[in-house]
């Protein structure tokens, strides 16, 4: 994968929100690459900056949020330097996005078809009849039964899973090279979740697009991602191939997250949870932002912030105490006696 050119390269992205109470450093120096046709998972608790990262790539932040530093290079162009006009050409056409709440991401006053056609007419410069044909075709592709009938229905006439399928149809109608999926399955129940993930994988194979999957759900990450970035408090703390990450986490936060997954193969009295809460974005702790919740924290963690260092092939982690974690892993087998 290394020899290919990345489709999207995010370099040192910093997005701050300037609020009345102070500056919120929602995204604070994030780096990652997305290669054509692969899936990058971004995982983290709510408030860790994963959604803001995606909105920054699309340049869809509201007026309080500002990208203060960094580059977002898509196919060789820095998106942050484009004019609003040029950026609009990219949105929907080259990079598309699907959202968390299919219930509210469709406009209630238009039919599903109208909304899919909007994007097609806008970017593909085709007439209404042609756009309608494409819309019906897309609905068929995302597995909506009776697409000829559904195309004229209003969002409230569809179920949650159907609406998310329609959203996917809308996002993919112009064959984007990159799809950003912001918690696309969170609002759906598990069986529908599995169907939607399966659909996304299949469409990725058919259309060859890259996906950035943003979620807090490690199960979803394991299901769909090739590589994973774990975010905590506006920074990427670990970055690895999915199998490596699950087998051999190198950051105490990732390790703790893995331990919080309920396991069926062993007996557990209580489910492990990470002590403390996500830090307030206005008052991040000094040094490593995870240190107040970290069982391996030392004095150094309180004063100095670790950088991402290469800990294996294509595996990066930002921690001062990787040896301590390794020692702990040896003494306690993950998930037991905790």
């Amino acid at each position: 994968m290394k020899d290919k050119q990345p489709l999207l390269k995010v370099k040192n992205l910093k997005t701050y929100f300037f609020t009345e109470d102070g500056v919120v450093k929602a995204v604070d120096g994030v780096n990652f690459d997305v290669y054509p046709g692969e899936t990058l998972g971004i995982v983290g608790e709510s408030g860790c900056g994963k959604s803001v990262t995606s909105l920054s790539i699309m340049r869809l932040l509201d007026e309080k949020g500002k990208i203060v530093d960094g580059e977002v290079i898509f196919e060789g162009k820095d998106l942050l330097k484009l004019s609003e006009e040029e950026m609009r050409e990219i949105r929907g056409n080259d990079i598309a996005m699907i959202f968390q709440e299919p219930m509210v991401a469709l406009n209630p006053v238009y039919t599903v078809g109208d909304q899919i056609m909007e994007a097609i007419i806008l970017h593909q410069k085709v007439g209404k009849d042609e756009a309608r044909k494409i819309a019906i075709d897309m609905l068929k592709k995302v597995g909506i039964p009776e697409p000829e009938k559904r195309v004229d229905e209003y969002p409230h006439e569809l179920s949650g899973g159907m609406r998310q399928r329609a959203m996917i149809a809308m996002a993919l109608s112009c064959h984007p090279k990159l799809l950003i999926a912001d918690e696309p399955t969170t609002a759906l129940d598990v069986t529908i979740q599995a169907q939607i993930l399966e659909l996304m994988k299949q469409l990725q194979r058919d259309l060859g697009m890259a996906i950035i999957m943003i979620t807090h759900d490690l199960g979803v990450i394991a299901e769909i991602s090739d590589r994973v970035a774990v975010m905590y408090a506006g920074k990427i703390v670990e970055y690895a191939d999915v199998k490596v990450l699950f087998k051999d986490p190198k950051h105490p936060y990732t390790w703790a997250l893995m331990n919080s997954i309920p396991r069926l193969d062993i007996e557990q009295e209580r489910l492990f949870s990470i002590p403390g809460i996500v830090p307030d974005a206005l008052h991040f702790p000094s040094g490593c932002k995870f240190h107040p919740r970290c069982e391996f924290a030392t004095e150094k963690c309180k004063s100095e912030e670790p950088e991402l260092i290469e800990v294996g092939s294509n595996h990066f982690a930002a921690c001062w105490n990787i040896e301590k974690l390794e020692a702990a892993k040896d003494s306690v087998r993950v998930g037991e006696n905790r």
């Binding site: 991401a105 469709l106 406009n107 909007e118 994007a119 809308m170």
Partner: peptide
Amino acid sequence: EQYVLAAKALGVR
């Protein structure tokens, strides 16, 4: 509303 954001994400002016 998210559909306004969704429309923006599709490149609507």
